Amino acid sequence: MPIPSDIDRRTLLGGVVAVTAATTISASSDAQSATLSLKGKSILITGSSSGFGYDGALHYARAGAKVIASMRNLPRAEADTLKAAAAKEKLDISIIEIDVTSDEQVTKGVAEAERLAGGALDVLINNAGVGYAGPIELQDMEATKLIFDTNVYGPHRMARAVLPAMRKAKRGLIFNISSQLGRVIVPSAGHYSPTKFALEAMSEAMAYELVPHNIEVCVIQPGGYPTKVWVNRNVLAKELKGRITEDQAAAYPALVSRMGLEDGSGRSADPMDVPRAIGEIIAMPAGTRPLRKAVHPGPKPQEAINKVSAETQVAMLGNTPFGPWIKAVHD
């Protein structure tokens, strides 16, 4: 099928602009929960047991959204805590079970989320993720398969599950939570950067391909935050450390000695930065949302790479049949 040469993102998505243009976006992050309006939005979040997912579920619901918060291994204490918080504030939060590494749970969970939403979801937030530590050579196949299954295949499963209804509705927004390390690389983080680089590429390809369907994709690139991700990372890193050989450990003594001991201490940035940024982007008029958003009060080294990447994409493909899609995403 030939690619139409007259695709314009703002024209394609213009029908939604009038509906969302009046949405209030606070100039102050501290006051955003009181001024942001996400009324009428249905939002499905993965990895809602802690961190950005847990905080986000409450934040979006306080702004009026219908939130479907998913997590794995139900029942669990975190689900009870979130349920109690929602009940106390009379927030519209439903909790469902989704392990993003399970085809069956993704299919069943998304179907339930769409039932609760009364149709196609407005927003999917792919937040679930895991991390490891240690040199790449020491990442055995057990660790490698788990991190790719969670950080790459998980968001892919979720997108494939929500997109049929979104395409039929001709609207939708998918957030993929990447990282600064999805653009820059720090040694001894295992396959964390490789998975986030893959997620970045997959997200950008989807953003182009979904332009004709009025569906947007946004990559969130957080810096380091003091969330439970460090606790979970250490558990996995210690398990991996227990499986490596003496010869492997001797090859990287300094790096192996740190595996399972990095607790994220010294990081004081407010994890609410990420839900606030996502809330602001949801509230933006369709067709004006960014492909990528770096989030952190400190340095954002990935922004320079984001800029060069966008310029390169437009220069390479802007005058090809794909040009309208590329320009629609990067304009």
Rank of each mutant, 00 (worst) to 15 (best):
V16K: 14
L91K: 03
P253N: 06
K327G: 15
S257A: 13
G15T: 13
Y192F: 15
V229F: 11
E78S: 09
V217W: 10
Y153F: 02
N319S: 15
K300T: 06
E262N: 12
A161R: 09
A143P: 06
S102Y: 06
M316Q: 15
Y54V: 02
A57R: 01
T24H: 15
V106Q: 02
D140N: 13
V100P: 02
E200I: 08
A86T: 00
P275M: 08
I3T: 14
G318K: 11
M1C: 07
P2M: 11
H296V: 00
S37A: 07
A111E: 13
V229G: 05
E311I: 08
M284V: 02
G131M: 15
A294C: 14
Q180C: 09
E216T: 03
P321W: 10
T107A: 13
R167Q: 12
A283L: 14
A249D: 11
F175R: 13
G40V: 01
V130G: 05
V211I: 07
G298C: 01
A61Y: 10
D149T: 09
N73H: 06
K300Q: 11
Y225V: 01
G47N: 01
P301H: 07
A205F: 11
G224I: 04
I3L: 14
M259R: 02
A113W: 04
A294V: 02
A277E: 10
R10Q: 14
L138A: 03
A189E: 14
P2F: 09
P222S: 05
I244T: 11
L74T: 10
P222T: 02
D80S: 10
K90P: 01
N151D: 12
G131D: 12
L13R: 13
I93L: 03
M158I: 05
I147N: 05
S268M: 06
E114M: 06
A269M: 09
G279Q: 11
I7C: 13
H59G: 08
L255F: 12
D80E: 09
L36S: 00
V186D: 10
K90F: 00
E303W: 02
L317Y: 15
D140R: 01
R10A: 10
K327V: 09
I185C: 13
G298I: 05
V67P: 14
P275K: 09
N126G: 08
P155T: 05
L124S: 10
L36K: 08
A111D: 13
D55N: 12
R115Y: 02
R72G: 12
D149W: 11
I305N: 00
E204K: 04
H59C: 04
